[in-house]
Computed example of a mutant assay.
Amino acid sequence: MLIQTGIPSAEDILTVTPSEERFAKGPVAIAECFQKIPCNPCMMACAKKAIRVEPDINQTPRVDFDVCNGCGVCLTRCPGLAIFIVDKTYSDTEALIKLPFEFLPLPKEGQLACGLNRAGEEMGWFPVVKVIPGSKTNKTCTICLAVPKDLAMEVRNIRAGGYQDGR
C-alpha cells in the first residue's frame, strides 16, 4: 500500500511503535521511515546512539526505545521529515507530539493548528504548545502540539497557515 499511496498501513506503523510501557516512561522518537534508501543523518545526530541504520546505510532506521530519551535532535535532521516525538506523559488526557515543519507562516504558541493525519485528512484543532525554530544551517522547525492521547499516533502534520487564536 505504501508504494502506491505514500501512506503507511496500520501494520507498517505497528512495526515502529513503542509499547505502552515505553510510552509511560516519557518522550520517545518514532521513525516512520519505511523505504530502504541510503540515509543516516538521524543516526549521526543521536548522541545516545539510540538510532541505528544497519547492517548498511540502505536499511531503515531502528530506534532503541529503551535508550531514546525523546530529545528530538533526530527529528530536525531527517531529510524525509519522517521522525516524530511522542510524549504520552504530558498530561492525564493529552499527549505532546513534536512535528517537523518547513512551511511559512509558522504558527505561534497559544494558537490552534489544524492537525492532519498521514493522508492529509483533518483530525481537529490542537493547541500549539511551543514552536522551536530551526538553526541557521538547518531550517526545519519543530511544532509541539497537545493532542488527545488517542490521537498521539495519528496526527502527523499541520495545515500550513491553518491557525486560529487559542482555546
Results as ranks from 00 to 15, higher is better:
residue 104 L to H: 12
residue 70 G to R: 02
residue 91 S to F: 10
residue 75 L to H: 00
residue 104 L to N: 15
residue 94 E to R: 04
residue 35 Q to L: 14
residue 62 R to D: 08
residue 71 C to N: 01
residue 70 G to C: 00
residue 87 D to H: 10
residue 94 E to A: 06
residue 98 K to G: 04
residue 70 G to T: 02
residue 104 L to K: 13
residue 50 A to K: 09
residue 76 T to Y: 04
residue 83 I to W: 01
residue 53 V to H: 01
residue 34 F to I: 06
residue 43 M to D: 11
residue 86 V to I: 13
residue 88 K to V: 08
residue 60 T to W: 07
residue 55 P to C: 07
residue 46 C to H: 09
residue 50 A to V: 06
residue 55 P to R: 04
residue 80 G to F: 12
residue 35 Q to W: 12
residue 106 L to A: 08
residue 66 D to P: 05
residue 43 M to T: 07
residue 68 C to H: 08
residue 99 L to T: 02
residue 67 V to D: 03
residue 103 F to P: 06
residue 46 C to W: 11
residue 58 N to P: 04
residue 93 T to R: 13
residue 56 D to F: 15
residue 65 F to M: 07
residue 86 V to A: 05
residue 38 P to G: 09
residue 53 V to E: 00
residue 79 P to S: 06
residue 56 D to L: 14
residue 64 D to R: 07
residue 52 R to S: 15
residue 72 G to Y: 04
residue 61 P to E: 03
residue 93 T to D: 10
residue 89 T to A: 13
residue 74 C to Y: 07
residue 78 C to F: 06
residue 95 A to C: 09
residue 34 F to A: 01
residue 79 P to M: 03
residue 51 I to F: 04
residue 104 L to S: 12
residue 46 C to K: 13
residue 49 K to E: 15
residue 80 G to D: 08
residue 45 A to H: 12
residue 60 T to P: 10
residue 91 S to V: 11
residue 34 F to T: 01
residue 71 C to S: 06
residue 77 R to W: 11
residue 50 A to T: 08
residue 81 L to R: 08
residue 40 N to A: 14
residue 45 A to G: 09
residue 70 G to K: 04
residue 57 I to D: 07
residue 61 P to S: 02
residue 79 P to A: 05
residue 83 I to E: 00
residue 34 F to E: 00
residue 98 K to F: 00
residue 85 I to F: 02
residue 37 I to G: 02
residue 104 L to F: 15
residue 89 T to R: 11
residue 93 T to L: 13
residue 67 V to H: 00
residue 58 N to E: 11
residue 87 D to T: 12
residue 64 D to N: 14
residue 36 K to R: 10
residue 96 L to G: 01
residue 40 N to L: 15
residue 85 I to W: 01
residue 46 C to I: 08
residue 107 P to A: 06
residue 96 L to R: 09
residue 53 V to Y: 02
residue 92 D to A: 15
residue 94 E to C: 09
residue 45 A to P: 08
residue 88 K to S: 07
residue 53 V to C: 01
residue 52 R to Q: 15
residue 65 F to W: 06
residue 38 P to S: 13
residue 68 C to A: 06
residue 39 C to F: 04
residue 48 K to M: 12
residue 42 C to F: 02
residue 40 N to W: 15
residue 53 V to K: 00
residue 62 R to W: 13
residue 85 I to N: 02
residue 38 P to F: 13
residue 67 V to Q: 04
residue 87 D to A: 05
residue 51 I to K: 00
residue 106 L to T: 00
residue 61 P to H: 03
residue 79 P to D: 03
residue 88 K to Q: 11
residue 64 D to K: 10
residue 58 N to D: 13
residue 37 I to E: 07
residue 77 R to I: 09
residue 77 R to H: 10
residue 66 D to E: 14
residue 68 C to S: 06
residue 55 P to T: 11
residue 85 I to S: 03
residue 67 V to M: 07
residue 78 C to D: 03
residue 92 D to I: 13
residue 49 K to P: 10
residue 47 A to V: 13
residue 90 Y to H: 10
residue 49 K to G: 15
residue 99 L to C: 07
residue 51 I to L: 00
residue 38 P to H: 09
residue 65 F to G: 07
residue 79 P to W: 01
residue 45 A to I: 10
residue 79 P to C: 04
residue 82 A to L: 07
residue 39 C to I: 11
residue 90 Y to A: 01
residue 64 D to V: 05
residue 82 A to S: 09
residue 63 V to M: 03
residue 98 K to M: 07
residue 104 L to Y: 14
residue 107 P to W: 08
residue 105 P to T: 05
residue 102 E to F: 10
residue 49 K to A: 14
